[in-house]
Design a protein around this nucleic acid. Structure first.
Length: 278
DNA sequence: AATGGCCTGGTG
DNA sequence: CACCAGGCCATT
């Protein structure tokens, strides 16, 4: 559930607390956070806790970066830890409800807890994070002019898939999940099922603005905290208070009063107003 | 392009 | 008790 605005909020939090700090010790309580869990429950990468520790101990944090939904803790020697929170992952500087899977102890007493109710979240150590395949394959960031009507036109051309599914594809646009795709399509007045290749340019231009707007607003509200998301201090965001369509199945549309409908596209729920989204 | 698997708390 | 959400990768 953490999408771009949630990850960005955590990034900014960590930046204020852990920059220039050195890792003194760490505890790996669940190795699968490091190896990942693949098909048939098999580990996706081969790494041991001692191996991981030897790479991390004594390193100093130089920068926190973000690419799509990935959060990167970059060390002064150029190596990095790349976090993905998937659905229920949390990065906290204060312990919360459930036990941590990894804990980092810093030189001035700060602690960083990685928790995850389920076990989809991952941490990858990399000597050159920008070259990781999962990073290289990411599409443009939806926070600035890179996500223009022209860009949308170029990635939609020749495709007939529903626009909702296309916008969830991280290789085309990185950082959007179900919440913000739902909100952006509502704001732009586009039906989730609309085949993306046949949308007029003026509408794409509008959509690009809606996406950027929805993301910027949510960063300002510090993320959507209906479920497990909290910031690095363990505090909830307020974006859920402003959501217009996501999670509103069966409720009246604030724009026209019709009842929101929910359909399933590529296995994901999409909520929309059947009257004012075309 | 669509489907299944990964995991587990929450809902029907 | 069965089943689903959620992001992403692997397989079809």
């Amino acid at each position: 559930m953490p999408e771009l605005p949630e990850v960005e909020t955590i990034r900014r939090d960590l930046e204020t607390i852990l920059l220039e700090r050195t890792i003194q010790s760490l505890q790996v309580k669940d190795l699968s956070v490091l190896t990942g869990i693949g098909p048939k429950g098999q580990p996706r990468r081969r790494i041991s806790a001692p191996q991981f520790k030897s790479k991390i101990l004594g390193k100093t944090v130089q920068k926190f970066d973000r690419r799509g939904k990935y959060l990167i803790m970059e060390f002064s020697d150029g190596t990095a830890l790349v976090f993905h929170l998937r659905i229920t992952g949390q990065l906290l500087v204060a312990p919360l409800n459930y036990p941590e899977r990894i804990r980092f102890d810093f030189d001035e007493g700060q602690r960083l807890y990685f928790t995850d109710r389920r076990r989809f979240g991952e941490v990858i150590f990399s000597e050159n994070w920008k070259a990781l395949p999962e990073i290289v394959s990411l599409g443009v960031e939806p926070i600035n002019e890179a996500l223009s009507g022209e860009y949308l036109k170029s990635i939609f051309r020749g495709r007939s898939a529903p626009i909702h599914s296309i916008l969830l594809n991280q290789k085309l646009v990185s950082g959007l999940g179900n919440i913000y795709v739902t909100e952006a399509l509502f704001q732009a007045g586009l039906r989730p099922k609309r085949p993306c290749g046949k949308i007029p340019f003026s509408k794409l231009s509008e959509l690009s603005q809606s996406i950027r707007q929805v993301i910027a607003d949510s960063i300002e509200h510090r993320g959507y905290s209906m479920n497990t998301y909290v910031d690095a201090m363990g505090k909830k965001g307020r974006s859920q208070l402003f959501s217009k369509a996501y999670g509103k199945d069966g409720l009246p549309c604030p724009r026209c009063g019709a009842t929101f409908k929910r359909i399933v596209l590529a296995g994901r729920g999409a909520v929309f107003c059947p009257r004012c989204q075309e």
